Simulated assay, not measured.
Amino acid sequence: MPHHREPGFIFCAYLKLLLLFFIDPILILVFVICHPTYSSSFLLSHQAFWHCSIVTIISFLIVFQPKTSEANPDDLHKIFYFFLMIYLSIFCHADESILKYIKKKVQKMSHIIIGLFGMILSVWMMIGCIVSKEFDFYRTTAGCIYMLCICSLTFFYLVFSSFETDYYISLPSANQPFSGIKLYVVTFGLFHLMVGIAVINLTSAWPISLHLLASSFVFCADAYSCLFTETYIFYDHRPLMIDDVENNSANEIVCHVVVRRMYEKMKNPEDLPKIFKFDDEVEDYLYLKA
């Protein structure tokens, strides 16, 4: 049954959204564009991608300004505007042009891992383009590689995401990288911090570079946790019910999955759920269930 909220509750909810919009409009944009269950799993990676892609596109012409007044800025400007038209025309219709070829009804852990590593590579190549431009590397070449990296970042995000799937993957809370203090998260954090200090001294576009590094940190943490997780959970994408807030936030567990290659190494296999499927057999099970 739909849950009717008091006017005061609705007012506070809209006020909270308004405040969040002024603090971080991209955060609200993600929740508006994406179905709640599309972004609920690996939320920080979703947020990192959207912040990263929007900021890099908006700031492109500023980052790749010519260092000398004699240089002609129009060459790269024309390429960028052409790129932007192609980029928007392709990825705004990704459900027809890309997702139907790479996505199935059941999200795969391999897709998540490949997508995360692809985004990491794309982000680091963009940082390299920014730094190389500061050292008088060919500005047009660096800018073109940067634009290609924006495309690859978006493509690998689509591979990583659960768009156009019926069932999506989430890690148990104990295996999520930012639930508690994890050694590998601290290690990634220190590494990115040291690189960030170096980048500040290397480029005048250090705010963009730090933004990319922060995204890389999130992608690395999620990629490591997915690569070495022993178990994960499949959830069912729920239909969006505007009048039923509680059901929108409730996730329906479809099945628990155990990674077979990690099963023999488990110290406490008795802690596993009573009913589970191995990762190499779960896809057939979910297709039959669907």
Rank of each mutant, 00 (worst) to 15 (best):
Y14F: 11
T37R: 04
L15D: 02
C92I: 09
I58R: 01
H35D: 05
C92Q: 12
I54G: 02
Q47I: 13
L84G: 00
V32L: 13
Q47V: 09
N72W: 01
I90M: 05
L43D: 00
G8M: 03
K105D: 15
L29F: 15
S45T: 12
F80D: 00
L17F: 14
E70F: 06
C92A: 09
L27I: 01
V55W: 08
D75G: 09
H51Q: 11
S41N: 12
P7F: 02
V30Q: 10
Y81W: 14
L44S: 15
F22A: 11
K78W: 11
F49S: 02
I86C: 12
D24F: 07
I57D: 00
I26G: 07
P36F: 06
K100Q: 14
P73H: 00
E70C: 05
L20F: 09
L99D: 15
V106K: 02
L20N: 14
L29Q: 04
P36K: 06
Y81F: 15
I62C: 09
Q65V: 08
I57H: 05
L76M: 08
V63S: 10
I90T: 11
L44P: 05
K104D: 13
A94S: 12
E70A: 08
L61I: 05
F64Y: 03
H93L: 09
L17Y: 15
P73Y: 05
T56G: 02
K100V: 13
F9C: 06
I28K: 02
S59P: 02
L43V: 05
N72P: 00
S41F: 10
I26A: 05
S97E: 09
H51I: 03
I86F: 09
I102H: 06
D75Q: 09
I28C: 03
L76F: 05
I86M: 12
I57Y: 06
S45V: 04
S39W: 13
W50F: 15
F49G: 02
A13N: 03
K105F: 04
K100E: 11
G8R: 04
V32D: 01
D74E: 10
I33E: 10
I23K: 13
I26E: 05
F31K: 07
K16T: 14
D24L: 05
D74A: 07
I62E: 14
K103E: 07
S40Q: 06
S45P: 04
I102M: 03
P36D: 04
I54L: 14
F22R: 05
